[in-house]
Design a protein around this nucleic acid. Sequence first.
DNA 1: AAGCGCAGCAACCGCCTCTTG
DNA 2: CCAAGAGGCGGTTGCTGCGCT
Length: 210
Amino acid sequence: MERREVKTMAKKGLWKPEEDFLLIKYIETHGEGNWATVSQKTGLKRGGKSCRLRWKNYLRPNIKRGMMSKEEEDLIIRMHKLLGNRWSLIAGRLPGRTDNDIKNYWNTHLNKICSKEKTKSKVSNNSVTKKKKIRSTSPETTTCPPDERKEEGTLTNTWLEETNSFTQETKSTLSPSTYTPLFYEDEPFMPFLDSYFFFEDIMRPVMWMP
DNA sequence: AAGCGCAGCAACCGCCTCTTG
DNA sequence: CCAAGAGGCGGTTGCTGCGCT
């Protein structure tokens, strides 16, 4: 009841500087979290999700904006091949970049590049279907199977196989200079990804499976 | 100069997972 | 164990600015 009321009353659209200011002030004093109560406590007529998103994607300190570097671009492409549209996981490897950022960057820049490459190499994969239209250029998006989404840490045999073949592929396409694994101290530790990069380095599969 | 189309990006939506009582 | 609420994530939309005709 009340939730629905708040929902319909919630302000939408672009954030104004004064709204940003209120949100920043609130988080400075109370810290992140309790997004549901942020609107009440700040007077912002925004939903909790909206506040959280604004903070996470725009207001948070150490957010890196602007052009992606070549290294970042390469990493995104590699990670996307590996993980599919797991933007948050990919973002975890790129300090200062948000999942939304990467998603947008992929959809606008990299998807074109990759689909071009794919057309070149004539790798046909007709099983990918889209739910809704994607702008004029109809960039291809790959989605992970629901099963894989559910099991973050457990890697399927299929996944492993794909990973192995991907490694061979990557080895042949990437130049040595771009092939350096990236590690960031301030990023969350993701064992299976680190294993992957390690494994990339030594050119040998590492057994993750039990 | 005006109109149109496209690219880029911020923000929203809906679903799923996690947490808590 | 279950239900409800909060948080997180990926897909999608819509606005804005820019370039082209």
